[in-house]
Design a protein around this nucleic acid. Structure first.
Lengths: 329, 329
DNA sequence: CCAGTGTGGTAAAACGATTTAACCACACCT
DNA sequence: AGGTGTGGTTAAATCGTTTTACCACACTGG
């Protein structure tokens, strides 16, 4: 490259990288640029990474790559990263937790400059977090830890919106299917729900709080448990849309009519809530933006910014009313 | 590192990489290994990549990262790659097609050793393919091109299975909602369908073949078109499960009863086919395996193997009968 | 005329691993 | 004893950038 331009590699580098402090004659610059184009030269990534001690790659670890909600977040992260010149590596939490060896390698070989962890909150994932922060700057999505960068949804607001919807329809007996119970996001959703109920002088009955998870089988199973009880709620807030679909399935299975006998509203919204039976009322949350915000924060940290914990309040959660909610019988 | 072990870097490298041609005293090896552990040393990825002229990363470009079916394939690819010591970068076709500049950079900077392209078959993606093969070894998923590595499903068999199911139920008036019409996988599915019909002396009426796409809106719109016709089929094969869901929605919208007035069977199966209204009969296809096979093939190519075109016949497609199909009225 | 100040570069030393060639000590063979 | 392996280790070159130090030259002001 340098040879073709008849110029030292130093100059080439500085021209290509548009170094502002470089003083150069316009025609020399042009010579470099045209040589670069005619050779269709691209700087070697590995050499740059070596010299700059940074790889230009971020890694997003998702609890489950096939989880439909992660797709949105991933895309947000991806687009933002690309805009800043980073590429995104993908990790599957389960796979990595299984194979700690390779996980450690990935982190400590400086192949990635930073990490975004989007985990489920299950305890099996603890080592992933511990190792992460020890090695590279890390941002947590939808879970918080002291002194770590994180981006979380406004879960209280989302849950409150769901609760208000049920209250407006006239429900007073309201149940809650939590996500992974130990996860802080699940607890935030519960708090948001409780706050709204208390305003109305209502309480969340402990026996109507059932532990679920983030996927369909978990919601299914949780609602079966709930339906076994003598007294039943008339309205149900489900902490996750996949679990919400499981809830609908459980109702069908037990011949519980939705929404006449039980109204169901879930948190998060995706394209297929229109297509469930009945279509599922859901609270729309800014998942795309969450991914984007996580990457923004991470890049900010990489540039020397401090670790912050961001609560994503914009855009605010929105209710999409469908046919799984209605007035109590 | 070398210093702590009291040994030259050459030895360290060869011990760490387990070089078979190295003859070394057991205690020397042990010294190296224990020093490596105590310093918790990991070779710098960038330096290795530079020296070895290979990055240890593969890139999977999907037409749409949020597409539920891609999740499965992605996971298969991911796990296989990890097993071989590769990490997987993720690309979004739409994003990359938009931003060719960065795409070219990614490919030519040798940041990835190989590429897996899982595209939709739309013409906008053509440049992605062209550039890819010019720069790095590439494997196409579910589409074929002369002289390129590729992995495709046994689409004929899958479509045939769907058709046989309808025939067995007694349908003779069968329609087809294709995917992206120009894509070869769509054509293979159509051929599979036609072959089975011909065996029974039946024909696929041209007016009952409607062009769709790979997502819900496309299927929705295609079936609305189909339902506008005077004469209607009683059974419908939809080339994609998402489009299938759109088909169901279109039927609901037009008050066409499924399965009594129209039976619908789609290709590909995912967890939510159980939850549509009515639950959707679908042909299960080995998506996970397809991702895995693509990566296997790519790695084989990277190791000097020739470009092959693999048809994935194992495991064979399987029919999951649900409530969207039944005997004709 | 000379010191000082720009200007437009060049040359060389990193970055951290891998690989090759070279070297040495020692044993074994003839 | 001289030649030939053999086992074990070292030194040096290399990958392609970036960065720092430095240089030659022209121009300027006193």
């Amino acid at each position: 490259m340098a040879k073709a331009a008849g110029v030292s590699p130093a100059i080439v580098s500085r021209v290509i990288n548009d170094d502002q402090s470089l003083r150069i004659r316009p025609d020399t610059r042009k010579r470099v640029l045209s040589a670069a184009k005619s050779l269709d030269y691209t700087p070697n990534g590995a050499a740059r990474a070596l010299r700059l001690a940074s790889s230009g790659a971020l890694c997003l670890v998702a609890s489950d790559v096939t989880h439909p909600l992660h797709g949105e977040t991933l895309r947000g992260a991806h687009i933002r990263a690309a805009r800043a010149g980073y590429v995104v590596l993908l990790g599957d939490a389960e796979e990595l937790a299984h194979n700690q060896q390779s996980y450690e390698n990935l982190l400590s070989s400086r192949r990635v400059d930073g990490l975004v962890l989007h985990l489920s909150g299950r305890s099996a994932e603890a080592p992933l977090r511990r190792l992460a922060e020890a090695r590279v700057p890390t941002v947590l999505i939808n879970s918080r830890m002291r002194g770590r960068g994180s981006v979380i949804l406004d879960d209280e607001a989302a849950a409150a919106l769901a609760a208000e919807h049920l209250l407006e329809l006239g429900h007073t007996r309201i149940g809650f299917v939590s996500g992974v119970a130990a996860s802080d996001r699940s607890q935030r959703r519960r708090r948001g729900l409780e706050a709204v109920l208390e305003q109305q002088g209502l309480r969340l009955k402990p026996e109507w709080i059932v532990a679920g998870g983030w996927d369909e089988p978990a919601g299914h199973e949780a609602v079966l448990r709930l339906l076994r009880q003598r007294e039943r709620p008339t309205g149900l807030v489900v902490a996750n849309v996949l679990a919400g679909i499981g809830a609908l399935a459980a109702c069908r299975e037990r011949a519980v009519e939705v929404p006449h006998e039980l109204s169901v509203v879930a948190i998060h919204d995706t394209w297929f809530t229109d297509h469930t039976n009945p279509p599922l009322t859901a609270v729309k949350t800014p998942l795309w933006e969450m991914g984007a915000a996580a990457v923004d924060l991470l890049i900010e940290m990489l540039n020397g910014g401090e670790r912050r914990s961001v609560v994503l309040r914009e855009p605010p959660p929105e209710l999409a009313v469908r046919e799984s909610t209605g007035p109590p019988a």
